[in-house]
């Protein structure tokens, strides 16, 4: 089982079908500047994310990667700049967008079950007051099955491993059935099996024409996992297809040290 999925990754190598970026723009960021108190965290970011890419946002700690996602999603208020999703504001398009926050951002000792957390993904389309019913439950169970967590549906969330918790978060976003997925470090603190399971799901999403944007830390896996990359360190350093711009020059500019990444054949 394990070996099979490893092979899957190699087979579904993305290099032959890399998007050109000439198509529709899914997310457009203009002159975005965000500051906590006086210190700018993001400085004058212009960014166009084409539809259908699987994009990594890379950069050192404190580069503003999470902040960028949170500003696009309207969680943080920028001091300048604007964001559009398919040409309209986030408020108007939020049903097209799903979000997977960092696993560490919530208290996993909260008294609730795995299924319950995944059901939360349906709350947005339900709107105020209306309760989730059978339809929502069915969608949540399907999402749990997709991430291989169906057997854990009734489990209290604190009794799940880090990898399982991450899968639950992914399932919650899948339930939203969005066009654009934002994920904040989905591979942080998960084991190899979960990492493979997650990346396979992300690639499936991409194949289905969805746009997936991932804050990513492991530079070694960027060429293997992603077809699009944005280098970020307070300012935007570069953005484009991995095969064109994922090189030592941009890595050095982003990380400030002479960075050599050995890209495996």
């Amino acid at each position: 089982m394990k070996k099979e999925s490893k092979e899957n990754i190699k087979h579904s190598s993305l290099s032959d079908e890399t998007p050109t970026g000439a198509g529709t723009i899914a997310v457009k960021v203009d002159d975005l500047t965000v500051a906590y108190n006086y210190k700018p965290v993001l400085w004058d970011i212009d960014l166009e994310i084409p539809e259908g890419v699987l994009m990594a946002i890379v950069g050192p700690n404190g580069a503003g990667k999470s902040t960028l996602i949170k500003s696009i999603l309207g969680i943080l208020k920028p001091i300048a700049g604007s964001v559009t999703i398919y040409g309209k504001s986030y408020e108007k398009q939020r049903k097209l967008v799903a979000y997977v926050p960092q696993k560490g951002s919530v208290d996993w000792d909260f008294p609730t079950t795995a299924l319950d957390v995944v059901m939360m993904g349906t709350y947005g389309s339900l709107g105020w007051i209306k309760r989730p019913g059978q339809k929502e439950k069915k969608a949540a169970l399907e999402a749990l099955e997709k991430v291989g967590m169906l057997a854990f549906q009734g489990r209290q969330i604190s009794q799940l491993s880090g990898g399982q918790q991450q899968r639950i978060f992914l399932a919650r976003a899948l339930v939203q059935n969005a066009s654009i997925y934002f994920m904040d470090e989905p591979f942080q603190g998960v084991d190899a099996t979960t990492e493979i399971a997650i990346i396979n799901i992300l690639k499936e999403l991409r194949k289905a024409g969805k746009t997936v944007i991932v804050v990513h830390h492991d530079l070694q896996t960027v060429p293997e996992y992603f077809d699009w990359v944005t280098f970020l360190n307070v300012k935007k350093i570069a953005t484009g297809p991995v095969k064109d711009i994922f090189n030592d020059d941009n890595l050095t500019k982003t990380y400030g040290i002479n960075y050599k990444v050995s890209i495996q054949e």
Binding site: G74, R94, S105, D107, Y123, W128, I129
Partner: peptide, 18 residues
């Protein structure tokens, strides 16, 4: 429903439009 999701994950609640 709104109380529960806010208690668990406030940022996510915001992105859902609440």
């Amino acid at each position: 429903k709104e109380f529960k999701i806010l208690l668990f994950d406030a940022d996510y609640t915001k992105t859902l439009g609440f």
